[in-house]
């Protein structure tokens, strides 16, 4: 059974991508109780933005990353302020639809701007195999991807947990009116969390794009990340990480034993079971029913 540690190691990269996208879900859900169906599409957009910025900045990797951060934060804030903030207070179905339509727009616009042909992202990170003890093979790119996911999510977590801005975000999510009475600009806090969500999605999209060629059809990543977040608990960042790992491992096992076409459906079978058995996930807070 040497396959298990190997499967686990291989799963960690996928888990990092899920966790980054999932962290965006969680940030948005916590701040505005919106299920952001566009998260995977935003990852796609982020990867293409990395490509465009990389060309613009003469393939300087670090400057491109920095610029990508700025641009995606701006996109997140604008998306929220233009499309979602005017509809705050509408039912969840309207808000979900808005995010779905934003996703549809991205999918339609990306190939218009960048074409349908595959692109390759310039990267200084080597994909050459690094052999670790225990027969595990990894690469520079894999290690950086995993480390980035951990750092980004830990950063989000600390921000929410310890800073006053984080407290304001949690307060605005729980009770927007009371938060306003306490002087919190609720639209602004939600906009900030959208900015973070798009940032995390961009990082995930780039990390994905760096190890494969970039085509407009990678939005499936977002839908596969959904179950990961639910397994962990929709409102929990550590949950998103644990859920991402569990899901990635589960998918790898399913691919090994059932066949490659079972990966996506495995995710959703897991989702369904979790919803029926423990709807608030492993780490989520049970929502109180107020009579």
């Amino acid at each position: 059974m040497a396959a298990l540690p190997e499967a686990l190691a291989g799963s960690l990269v996928l888990a990092s991508l899920y966790a980054l996208i999932g962290a965006g879900f969680v940030m948005v859900y916590r701040s505005s109780k919106v299920l952001n169906f566009a998260q995977g599409h935003l990852a796609l957009l982020g990867a293409y933005l990395f490509y465009a910025l990389s060309v613009l900045l003469h393939r300087d990797f670090l400057w491109t990353l920095a610029a990508l951060g700025v641009v995606s934060v701006a996109i997140g804030a604008v998306l929220y302020l233009v499309f979602l903030s005017p509809l705050a207070g509408e039912g969840p179905i309207i808000l979900i639809m808005i995010t779905i339509i934003i996703g549809a727009l991205i999918v339609a616009i990306v190939p218009m701007v960048w074409g349908t042909q595959p692109h390759t992202l310039a990267s200084p990170l080597s994909q050459a195999g690094i052999h670790l003890p225990g027969g595990i093979v990894t690469s520079e790119l894999d290690l950086v991807t995993i480390a980035t996911a951990v750092v980004v999510i830990a950063g989000f977590w600390c921000l929410i947990r310890f800073t006053t801005s984080g407290i304001a975000m949690r307060a605005a999510a729980e009770n927007p009116l009371l938060a306003s009475y306490r002087g919190v600009n609720v639209a602004l806090t939600a906009g900030v969390s959208w900015a973070f969500a798009v940032f995390a999605a961009s990082v995930a999209g780039t990390a994905y794009g760096l190890r494969a060629t970039l085509t407009p059809s990678i939005t499936g990543l977002g839908f596969a990340a959904f179950p990961a977040v639910v397994v962990g608990g929709l409102d929990s960042l550590p949950g998103a990480m644990v859920g991402a790992v569990l899901l990635a491992v589960g998918q790898n096992l399913a691919a090994t034993y059932l066949g490659g076409d079972w990966t996506d459906v495995t995710a959703y079978l897991v989702l369904l079971v979790v919803l029926l058995v423990r709807p608030h996930g492993l780490f989520g807070r049970k929502e109180l029913v107020r009579v």
């Binding site: 407290i167 949690r170 729980e174 009770n175 938060a179 919190v184």
Partner: peptide
């Protein structure tokens, strides 16, 4: 009050 925040966090926010 913000039920999902601690009392200290409620005060800190304000």
């Amino acid at each position: 009050v913000f039920t999902e925040l601690t009392v200290a966090e409620n005060l800190r926010l304000a």
